[in-house]
Amino acid sequence: MSLSQESDAELMVRFARGDADAFENLYRRHESRVFRYLHRNVRDEAAANDLMQEVWLAVVRRAASYQPTAKFTTWLFTIAHHRMVDLIRTTGRLQSLEADGADTPGAGLLDSLAADPKLEPPAEVQSQCEATALLNAVAQLPPDQRSAFLLQAEGDLSVEEIAAATGSSFETVKSRLRYARTKLRQLLWEYA
């Protein structure tokens, strides 16, 4: 069985036994999802990179004591969430991030389209515009709703797992997800 076919838990066990390739495979498998979760929460690339490094270094340090009792992604996104909350708590950058997302959905997309010669086909332009609008709508969600939605969308966590990762109750998480989806639909409808 190749490394790409092994489960996350198996890769972690192999890494704990000294297999560097297992860790690299595991990292590449979850790199984008973790980074997007962090980036779309803090909306700052430098901060997202710092958080990314902290999260994975934490994974490396805890590999020896890792017990595959839960899904690896749950464990991974729990670490990511805690690191992000710590950063927001220490720097207070959440307020500025919320202010940054107050602009019109898709406004940044138009600027990027003008500067990017590759996005000329109308379908791709439309797709890019829709994607940007959706992501901007996510950025406008309240922090708790946004974090819960991103954990579900990027981490593929269930409501229970989100509740465990964020330290919230099941009903609270369920409510946040419902409000988040309602607001996103509203924003997307307005955009359409």
Binding site: F23, E24, M52, L135
Partner: peptide
Amino acid sequence: ASDTLSTAPNDAVRAAILAEGR
């Protein structure tokens, strides 16, 4: 949309993480 506008950490961060992993 997330895949379309995917973002990734910079190479330095990736290299640092993988180096620490090794």
